[in-house]
Design a protein around this nucleic acid. Structure first.
Lengths: 228, 228
DNA sequence: CATCGTATGGTACATCGTACTAGTCAAGCG
DNA sequence: CGCTTGACTAGTACGATGTACCATACGATG
């Protein structure tokens, strides 16, 4: 795993120019810096815009240098996703009276964070559960339990909320991404409107109040989950 | 768009051997056949296992021949996804008394179809709405409307159910895919169990009754959505 | 000075999607 | 019949990608 100690017969003739501050304030290339830059790149150029070469360019380093800090590209995705889902404050609300408000707040924050980085939604399905996600699940579990949800229903309740948030975020993000296809989609819908009269009448696909719909649907779900 | 009419100076010396039934019963390579084979390949080798070269091999054709019937690889994904979500019978239940049962049945069928082809779940986020999906939404809309859901709540109800199904399917599929990482995941959870006492105690991540949980959560959601 | 762990990067390769080009074959037409 | 055309099938080649392999360079330690 270490470098070959093969003695170099050639003397290095480097003159130690520019000891620090090479060209563009290059920090020594750390795992965190890689992840941060990867997130920037993903934000700017989308999920296909992240290549190892580009990432190295943005960092001002060689491509293969990344592989010292990171296993492979999958690893970069995993780390980028988890870094975006950071969550604090699960322990702050020790004795809140408003469990419902707490749950809604956490889930809305979750959704907001993912929508701020639309690539994260389409990345989620294939990834494992990072610590930040587990932290959120833990907070959910604790809050619901304290709210009186029966132990037998607890896991179902958690997964239901998780499912709802994931689905809502994913849907919203994918509809956002297709801003280019918006015209085509609308056109196709109008063409086919005769086949789908009900959803055409209710303007299901044209309703843009995503935030409101998310909140209202979440309320419905919590109504169903509420004990008693 | 047509072939060059450049006159061939060389005469073809083909002797018309094997007029039909070339080597392995090769049908003339149609769009449908391409999509069907793509689904087979996706089922067998996963989302990264589908390459145009492999697809052509399985079809016994040249790679570039595919591009006559299909725009590009994205197109193959779109078609494969939609072909998996086929849905019939939306019009059959004209006057069912059990609207709730109808909804549950359609959604469970939806989920089951996607789980039968796990790649479809992780493919959904980036795709547009195909006709089969629209058909299902139409059925949902009609049924809920007839069940007495207020017009103002209709879209929210539909999206809530959609979100729930998408999230549940996606989650289930991703947990299934990580069968290899199951050991690592469980180990990591046990290691970190001190940080997540509540979800560890309720064995959230070890609960394997996905079908039951889906059904129960759906019931909760429908409870919340039920008019009155 | 020799050795080694940490860290960096250039080169090279297999594989991918697909543009370009050249074909084959059947039908239509003079 | 020969010639044209258009539907369809392929081979070749190109640029891009992830990353294995190898060669360094440098500070710390012997």
């Amino acid at each position: 795993m270490a470098a070959k100690p093969r003695g170099a017969s050639k003397r290095s003739q480097r003159t130690k120019l520019q000891p620090v501050q090479e060209a563009s304030s290059e920090s020594p290339l750390s795992r965190d810096r890689i992840v941060a830059t990867a997130v920037e790149l993903l934000d700017a150029r989308g999920i296909d815009g992240l290549t190892m070469r580009r990432l190295a360019d943005c960092l001002g380093s060689g491509v293969m240098s990344l592989y010292w800090h990171v296993d492979n590209k999958e690893d970069v995705f995993d780390l980028a996703l988890d870094s975006v889902l950071e969550y604090r404050g699960s322990l702050d609300i020790v004795e809140s009276q408003d469990w419902r408000g707490d749950v809604v707040h956490m889930l809305e924050d979750w959704r907001a964070r993912m929508l701020r980085h639309p690539w994260s939604a389409s990345l989620l399905p294939r990834r494992a559960l990072g610590p930040n996600i587990l932290g959120r699940l833990e907070m959910l579990s604790k809050t619901l339990s304290r709210a009186g949800v029966a132990d037998a229903d607890l896991n179902v309740a958690i997964w239901s909320l998780w499912n709802y948030v994931m689905g809502a975020t994913l849907t919203r993000a994918s509809f956002d991404l297709s801003d280019d296809d918006r015209a085509a989609g609308q056109q196709r819908l109008t063409i086919l409107s005769e086949h789908y009269p009900t959803i055409e009448r209710s303007r299901l696909l044209l309703d843009n109040d995503w935030d409101g719909a998310f909140r209202k649907g979440l309320d419905f779900l919590l109504d169903g989950l509420s004990p008693g």
